[in-house]
Amino acid sequence: MKVRAMTAIAALLAAPLAAVAGPDGDELVVNGEINMVTQTEAPAHLDGALPELYSGWRFRSDETQALQMDDFDNPAMVFVDQAQEAWDTADGTEGKSCASCHGDAAESMAGVRAVYPKWNEAAGEVRTLEAQVNDCRENRMGAKAWKYDGGDMAAMTALISVQSRGMPVNVAIDGPVQATWEMGKEIYYTRYGQLELSCANCHEDNYGNMIRADHLSQGQINGFPTYRLKNAKLNTAHARFKGCVRDTRAETFSPGSPEFVALELYVASRGNGLSVEGPSVRN
């Protein structure tokens, strides 16, 4: 066993050095005024699992990166405009809109994205932003819940996220959310599916490396919701989780499931200190 491990190490050292390795050195300033932290010290709770945090933006091509640097070029901004309309429009049996309770989103929603998922004392549960939006729709507006990872929801979280751009992600991991955080951590390190791959296999052990045509990032969610050129729409974090789990030839969890809520809290905490970038642009 020992001898074989050594052989493997020798082989690794002998392998030609990768053409693309690690994140690039670019700086992200949006609209020439919002300075994004795309690289920062890892939070203490990671216990050295990552030497440094990097936003997924740092792993994308210059062309893709450029789309996120100006709101006129960012294809996600159309959806922010749509959500602003939904924000101001009454829906449901109570005749209320989001604005009826929250006024101007630019004021009331500033800082919100940065601390979600978070504990809701009254409900006694960890809430994602999506769960909170649907709680308002169902219980305050008397409106139908939106599909958890559907277009209306993704757009609304984009509108909410945009009010926190540039603020550091800062989700709490202790107190009442601790058990959920631990559950998310366990999921993160479980090797699912017939390919037996965990989130950590790709996004902790191999970020910076190519897996076939894909340049692996740290799988951070500070940029969500994210507009993907690949499917030309806004994508929620849970939809992305689902895709990554499916790619391990596993039976996935559902968007909004307790497992993905826990995973979101844990993955968000791995990005504590990076700027809120949503809505971002990825390939």
């Binding site: 479980t190 090797r191 599916g193 017939q194 689902k242 499916r246 391990t248 030839r249 596993a250 996935t252």
Partner: peptide, 9 residues
């Protein structure tokens, strides 16, 4: 752990 039907999820 949670094997799937190929890549269908």
């Amino acid at each position: 752990v949670r094997p799937g039907n190929a890549y269908t999820g």
